[in-house]
């Protein structure tokens, strides 16, 4: 008898989560649009320079993302644990992470009040998010001065989030990372703060429809690990093309080792 009740409850919970997931997506899109038109527009009216404005905007995005995660958690859509939060307390950190789900950047920005990131150029043509992406001073992914802009961002003490795997992981092993993150670290001679994200069961992955939700709510584990020092990879007289290959191979190995934890 009780197993029927259990099954019924599981079913009810599933349907609830399906509806709430839909609501979350609408909430995210609508929230972005409303914030874009109100909060972020007001930023342009304030008598502050561009840098101050970007700091305010980044802080607002961080708060909004934190509320969004809180909302999803409250709806029973996900649970999470964050380990090593104190390792993200510095300003101007170069943060890298693996990228299993759509929510990774939301989690990371929610943890970093002054976060810059590299964003698809198309978003500057999307009126729903134009407000925040331009006010926050995010970097366009097709920029010709990408390296210099990343370097500037770190020098301004914005933290910079990069997913070296590019767009979301497809779950293939071994991991293959692009060299962009390594190139930024070498160019700026900046240590790297590695974050390892795990989501069980898998949800919101690349190429997966939003309504394909797992049977039980996903649990996110976000592990912030001690910095990878850049100094050993900066070899005098060596070429950047060589150093970035070595550093990228090291980062791939690092993630292979830590991703299962």
């Amino acid at each position: 008898m009780s197993s029927y009740v259990d099954q019924f409850l599981v079913r009810v919970n599933y349907i609830w989560r399906l509806i709430a997931t839909g609501i979350s997506f609408v909430f995210f899109g609508l929230g972005g649009a409303v914030a874009s038109l109100t909060l972020f527009s007001v930023l342009y009216l304030l008598p502050v320079n561009r840098q101050k404005r970007s700091i305010y905007a980044q802080y607002m995005v961080s708060l909004l993302f934190r509320s969004f995660i809180g909302f999803m958690n409250l709806c029973g859509l996900l649970t999470y644990e964050i380990n090593g939060r104190e390792l993200l307390k510095e300003k101007g950190q170069l943060v890298i992470a693996n990228h299993p789900t759509l929510l990774d950047v939301v989690f990371l920005i929610s943890l970093i009040p002054r976060a810059n990131c590299i964003v698809k150029e198309q978003l500057w043509r999307n009126p729903l998010v134009l407000g925040p992406v331009s006010a926050a001073g995010y970097i366009k992914n097709n920029s010709r001065q990408l390296m210099a802009q990343c370097d500037d961002s770190l020098k301004r003490q914005d933290s910079l989030i990069i997913f070296p795997g590019g767009t979301r992981d497809h779950g293939e092993r071994p991991l293959v990372f692009l060299r962009g993150a390594a190139n930024v670290a070498l160019f700026s001679a900046h240590d790297i703060t590695p974050v390892v994200i795990r989501c069980e069961p898998q949800t919101l992955g690349k190429g997966r429809a939003w309504y394909k939700i797992p049977k039980t709510p996903p649990h996110f584990v976000i592990n912030i690990l001690p910095d990878i020092a850049i100094q050993p990879f900066l070899v005098t007289g060596s070429r950047q093309s060589k150093m970035s290959r070595e550093l990228t191979a090291y980062i791939e190995g690092f993630y292979e080792k830590n991703i299962e934890f």
Binding site: N183, R239, Q240, S241
Partner: peptide, 9 residues
């Protein structure tokens, strides 16, 4: 080979 490599090339 990316744009950084191109510089070395």
């Amino acid at each position: 080979i990316d744009s950084i490599d191109a510089v070395d090339l």
